[in-house]
Write a protein that binds this DNA or RNA. Structure first.
Length: 220
DNA sequence: ATCCCGAGGG
DNA sequence: CCCTCTGGAT
């Protein structure tokens, strides 16, 4: 899949066009006003709904305004402030370690480069792509979360299982200007229609272009 | 492959 | 009690 045919790229463009008509306002669902806020929110969003993250960060961002605030807080205090988020101990530890690197190596700011972002604890390609795309309007890759992985596989856009490999397939298949929106639209689609256990294929706007949907609706 | 480990809904 | 929500590090 690293060298998709022109037919495969054309099919991908059709999928993007339909998604754009269906989800014209798709965007990042995390609330943030600065790159630091988005970075913290995205770390918190692992295995957790954006709604729950937003409910937590509403208070969190009033208390922690700078990287130094996270860096200097007692870890137990930060843990308590993240208590309602799943994996809160890991996330508190990662956010504090991340903030200390921002203070010590980046003047308290969030770095824009992929390599610098990936060196931060709790940050892998998904989080780095979210921050680059939504805070810096700089798109180097495709955001591949569980929704993007699942739906890309169902649509036959990739056969891979490993998120970095899925990302490589999608980067080869999609036009770069579509990368960020593609993920946002699939995330909306995944929440509303193409759900993990039980996709509601009848009525899906992508049914005609989806091998999995064809299979499911023919059997049932 | 396993660990991390909360909240809301049925 | 069980399932759903939905990444990163070791």
């Amino acid at each position: 899949m690293s060298h998709p045919s022109e037919a495969e790229r054309a099919r991908a463009r059709q999928i993007v066009a339909i998604l754009r008509r269906t989800y014209p306002d798709a965007k990042c669902s995390l609330n943030f006003t600065t790159p630091l806020e988005l970075l913290v929110a995205t770390i918190l969003s692992a295995q957790c709904t954006d709604e729950r993250v937003n409910a937590t960060t509403e208070k969190l961002f009033q208390k922690y305004r700078t990287a130094a605030d996270y860096a200097s807080a007692p870890l137990e205090q930060l843990e308590q402030d993240l208590k309602s988020i799943v994996f809160y101990r890991n996330k508190a530890k990662n956010i504090q370690a991340m903030a200390r690197i921002l203070v010590q190596e980046h003047g308290g700011e969030v770095p824009q480069g992929m390599d610098d972002l990936l060196r931060l604890p709790g940050v892998a390609r998904k989080t780095a792509n979210v921050v680059q795309g939504n805070a810096f309007h700089h798109v180097e890759g495709v955001v591949v979360d569980t929704h993007v992985s699942r739906i890309s596989r169902r649509l036959g856009l990739t056969k891979e299982d490993d998120p970095p490999k899925i990302e490589r397939d999608l980067m080869a298949l999609l036009d770069q200007p579509d990368w960020l929106d593609f993920s946002h639209m699939l995330i909306y689609h995944g929440r509303a229609v193409c759900k993990a256990p039980t996709p509601t294929c009848p009525g899906c706007v992508l049914l005609e272009l989806c091998p999995t949907g064809q299979e499911r609706t023919n059997v049932v």
